[in-house]
Design a binder for these strands. Structure first.
Lengths: 356, 356
DNA sequence: CGGGAGAGTTAAACCGTTTACACAAGGGGA
DNA sequence: TCCCCTTGTGTAAACGGTTTAACTCTCCCG
């Protein structure tokens, strides 16, 4: 036996459909049908059953129901961490859309560790999630891609959709929906904006080889420099991750390292910008009077520090991910969506001082 | 039959333990035992089974496993929204602790709607979650409390623990773990800090009747005024919710409404403080030179706007919630925990100008 | 008065796993 | 040689629902 009948067990066993049937004086099948409402039934029986359900405070066992083939499945989302505004907003979009489609939403955090991400995906496969949404920015290691590709195929076989959100495709052979936003275009536009304001030495904070988001953004930065005939100085590209304290560190190091050789800063995201701004202020440099500063994302704390930045539709990203996964059965559904971005001009960029 | 055998079905059925058993030439029970590793087995059998598992890429069906009585259950957390830094940090703590205890974490958002919150709790009951964590700040309506109390009893009956996080108990009769932090004490300390700096007219932004968090904080504010013999002017208490745009609105209204009759502002949280700061700056008032400003929470964007605030251990709150729920079987576990807070002095509060 | 038609209900099979119990083979002590 | 114990595996009964196929009534029509 799976479990002893435990008629003498201390704690009570939850109410089952059998209890309801007995209490209402009908069969189990009748209760099931009346509750699902998919079958005609006599009003008097219906009343009896509903009363029994209320009196016993019955709720169905989701495991049993899932096992029996009913599919009110769930959507899973894997992010680095929920405290990062970027992930939080995407997650919020996923949540909202999942709720709208009547799905439960499971959130997992990987902490940026590919190993944990793979483990969570495997877990979701066990849970028979309807869709698994992987959000952004992971090291594109070859062995990792190979394994994830394998999982993607397994998920698809089990009728589950893999959605890559703000992250590039795993290759044409791998079944996955991709929802991205235009990192390169946004960075290009922002860099052009800085150049138009007369800046020719723009410090880029947050380069990170192997990570797709920073790589796309720096590509836009470089392309804009080239398009406007501004010489590209690799010495102006600073390595770092996308956290606030890293922004602080990068700027500190730069200021401590010698005379200031830039008039503007383009941070890879708003968090870095916020950290860099703090380091600048500690050094007595005002934004935008002494140094212009631009970010990317348009998330808190951008409005609080008057940051000129690139707006990304984060919630829409999450919503689209879920929507595409749900609709992917219908023929015309696209498998790759690229969301646009737009500049948000606040007050952190000023005309370059020609003397600088 | 529950489902036709579908030997001719288009899409493949996921691999079951039976497939593995057949493929390895052993019985289903043997596969189960070898995979769970709780039983002795011959090395040669073990090898065969493991190879079959690998070749078929088998993962167990979590529904079936759950039904059969194995309990690697999950932890559920219900928050207003994941984009609010306050909830995000608590959720992060819950996630981390749940992961550490080997539990899956389900996140639901209620949008502050008691009705949806109740619905999610019911859903979690179906899912047989091991613990349900409800986070903060809901309207303490009587009918709602009654229903939630009923659910709490039902959850307990099903062996599931209800944890109220940053929210008061439902009453002594209701089985629930409560993890709070000291709102009143923190607000008292901050108000005292402002009074010590010479402020006697402190504007409180974010009063909200019926909501426990603002009510506790304003109680601390009033108590501190009384303790230091500063007259209490109800006209200095402004109603509003705990969002950034509300902080902006409240301060705007106040400044537009007449001459400034306060020298310091105590915002009910950092978000309100950030909004209020923006309104002040638009009016040409500098923080802290013209007006002192204090917040509550110590979450982004507090460090970016140099906000003096009250630090709350948000992650610890979430972690404690999960930990207590897991350990609640062992006798000595407390059912009510109050976490401390501490002042974080930055640069948004200055000595009051006696003339003001 | 026999015989569909159709509404309402029930018994039983099935979903995929775990596990109590049965059982076979092999080894060692009496 | 016999018996018992250990070790490894198989059989079958749960777990709690859903669904199919069969069955029992009424009712209506020829």
């Amino acid at each position: 036996m799976a479990r002893r009948p435990t008629p003498d067990d201390g704690r009570a066993r939850p109410t089952t459909i059998r209890d309801v049937a007995r209490h209402a004086g009908v069969s189990v099948a009748t209760v099931s049908r009346i509750l699902s409402g998919t079958y005609p039934s006599a009003p008097v029986t219906r009343t009896k059953v509903m009363r029994a359900v209320r009196e016993l405070d019955y709720v169905a066992n989701a495991h049993a129901r899932g096992l029996a083939g009913v599919q009110p499945k769930s959507v899973a989302i894997v992010v680095n961490s929920v405290t990062s505004p970027h992930y939080a907003h995407v997650a919020q979009g996923v949540q909202e859309q999942a709720a709208r489609e009547g799905r439960l939403c499971v959130v997992g955090t990987s902490g940026g560790d590919p190993e944990r991400e793979l483990a969570i995906v495997q877990l979701m496969r066990e849970q028979h999630a309807e869709a698994v949404v992987l959000v952004g920015n992971i090291s594109a290691d070859d062995a990792y891609r190979e394994r994830m590709a394998g999982y993607a195929r397994a998920l698809t076989l089990a009728g589950c959709h893999l959605v890559l959100c703000g992250r590039p495709s795993l290759g044409p052979e791998v079944p996955a929906i991709v929802v991205e936003y235009d990192n390169t275009g946004g960075a290009h536009a922002m860099t052009s904006h800085l150049i138009a304001a007369g800046h020719r030495r723009v410090l880029f904070l947050g380069r990170r080889a192997g990570y797709t988001t920073p790589e796309s953004r720096i590509a836009g930065y470089r392309a804009a420099l080239a398009a406007h005939g501004v010489p590209h100085d690799p010495g102006l590209e600073v390595d770092g991750t996308m956290e606030r304290h890293e922004g602080y560190r990068m700027m500190r190091d730069r200021l401590d390292g010698g005379p200031r050789d830039f008039t503007a800063v383009f941070a890879c995201n708003d968090q870095i910008a916020a950290g860099a701004r703090q380091a600048l202020r500690e050094e007595g440099l005002r934004v935008p009077d002494d140094v212009s500063l631009a970010g990317f994302d348009d998330l808190p704390p951008a409005p609080d520090i008057d940051l000129t930045t690139v707006h990304v539709q984060h919630k829409e990203l999450g919503r689209t991910a879920v929507r595409l996964a749900m609709e992917s059965e219908v023929p015309g559904t696209p498998e790759h969506v690229l969301l646009g971005t737009r500049l948000v001009i606040r007050d952190s960029v000023r005309q370059a001082c020609p003397a600088a």
